[in-house]
Design a protein around this nucleic acid. Structure first.
Lengths: 190, 190, 190, 190
DNA sequence: GGCTAACCGAGACGGTACGTCCTGTCTTGCA
DNA sequence: TGCAAGACAGGACGTACCGTCTCGGTTAGCC
């Protein structure tokens, strides 16, 4: 759809604050009404861009152990977080979700919750398998996994690398292998 | 300052989207120019409201052990996260930081970094004391602590209770005590 | 035709400014295209409403004298001017004729000229009969007759009564009978 | 005022139907709000253009007799009717007055009534002088004078010449001099 | 009696203008 | 002199209609 493409391109060119329905319509060569007919705000358009654009599918296939499942899940998830265009959209959608209550509700239900559901599968399988550690609780695992992801997207904008994946897997599975040397940082790099 | 009070009240009444410089000026009984003289945007006004309003000071006094220091830090921090008015401001400031690059820079430097600096003190002391576990690395500890906080503020809007503090402290200090029964939840409560 | 009825009703309900092709179509239960197929604008629709609705026929039968012919013509004509619904349509059509050049041309040819033609018959007969006064000239008679009619419709919105008919007949036939007492007004009643 | 000039010029260039507040604002180099701040519609702007532009003052000085007063009044009035730009404005204002009730009221009070007041002075003087004929009544004189004027403006768009002035003066003063030859027309020239 | 073609309601579409709201700047006039 | 009040150019909002266009579901005519 020309509208989604236009919205996506303009986001890159003028930023979210400079993104307007009028601008999208002009770029897409359509009337404003056509956009309003299908989406109530620019954020809704971008949410659809995200859905169409990004391969949001994260495998939660069985890798035999909780640690391996988690490693795969985090790897897949963080990989999305390295695509700048996807990140740009995620950031502004989370922002809009804070400002526009109606969109916030949609974003939580249609996006955030689905991510949680995917991780829930991994946790359920671990519990069934019996290798889910007592600490942290599943709920806290979710907070830690998605919290770390979003905090890096929104606040520090640090790259999310494999070392972080390993550190999280180790922490969440209580695997007390000492970290490799280069993983140790002595302060706050932000 | 009447302007800060007006901005704070209006945020509660009309929300961030409905908050305008004109509205603040009218409520405060001043001219728009007076506001522009001191702050370049409504977000900057709210950042100052936050600074003035909330007791953002978090003790990082020495409690004798890494676990106790962390427990105190998390308790103080999460306590702020239970004040609705403070949370409202935090959420919209983080949102604005995603949308307005110039404000984002200020917010990271003047607010987010200060929170990290406070936690850094705790981590430094733990390392000096020798009870900092090898996993997770200090950087990851920051991501987990602040990530969890912000994720709950922005995404799930779950209350941040003492059970979460304990779970995080246990996880971060690798203290393998099993959680108490009521801390275990078997699914996703969001 | 349902379309004409719908247009007529809506004119009464929402006025000419609020009258739209879409509204007519909705009310008539037809598609917009169907209206556009037959009439190029809402004014054209109303012109047809007028033609269908109002009995626009004005007798110009021979009453034996110029004065009596004129009296009959004015009586018939002014009678139309007392039907509010007809007046409403006449007013907006004359208005549209000022604004839309193409419609104006049609209105003059298809409506205004026909009225003039009817009066022309009266004047021709008077001339043939020899009782057409030298003043005012036939052209001026038309201006006075239709001018007075339209001026009252458009500008003063005064009722057009029999006293006006008599006054005009007397003036145009130079019949110098003094007016009856109640016809004399000492000022401007508008 | 740049806005009045812009409105006036655009009326000539694109016509009343094509005249928009946006267009006026663009041409005048101002914001739309500035126009809305002072006038509620494009018709109101044009009414002010008319007031500013046209020398609407019509002398009603005493010329010694009713006939001469009337001749002077008609001459002055019809002279305005020969200025195309003034006529264009008058036509669309009368049109708008039919369509927009609120503007119609203003137009009648602030424009049409003032013209009537001017003629009323002439009639009052004639009555005082004793040379006001019994027919037609003052009210009908107004209808005839302004009716003829407006009818020619709106309907026939015929030029208003001195012969018409003479014909009306003769008719209204019952001066039964036969018209000169060239004043006689044998039909309807429209 | 079944197939096809014309018709027509419904309404999406690219547009244009509406009238409102707010921006950030500038000017005015009061205290 | 400093500030409230608010006018100003500008620009986006979301809405209403415009006149054009496609889409399907009838309906009627023809084989």
């Amino acid at each position: 759809m020309a509208i989604l493409v236009a919205a996506f391109e303009l986001l890159g060119e003028v930023g979210y604050a400079g993104l307007t329905i009028e601008g999208i319509a002009t770029r897409a060569g359509c009337g404003k009404q056509t956009i309003y007919r299908w989406w109530p705000s620019k954020a809704h358009v971008l949410l659809e861009v995200l859905t169409v654009k990004a391969d949001l599918y994260v495998t939660n296939a069985d890798h035999g152990s909780y640690a391996d499942d988690l490693r795969a899940f985090l790897g897949d998830t963080f990989r999305l977080g390295r695509q700048q265009r996807v990140v740009d959209i995620l950031r502004v959608l989370m922002a809009e979700a804070q400002i526009n209550e109606e969109f916030g509700e949609l974003f939580r239900v249609a996006f955030l919750q689905r991510r949680r559901d995917a991780l829930q599968v991994v946790l359920d399988r671990a519990r069934a398998r019996g290798d889910l550690p007592p600490r942290p609780t599943p709920s806290t695992v979710m907070d830690i996994v998605f919290g770390t992801l979003w905090y890096r997207l929104l606040a520090t904008r640090q790259e999310m690398g494999d070392d972080l994946v390993e550190d999280l897997v180790a922490t969440l599975t209580q695997a007390a292998q000492p970290p490799t040397d280069q993983e140790i940082d002595l302060g706050d790099p932000q």
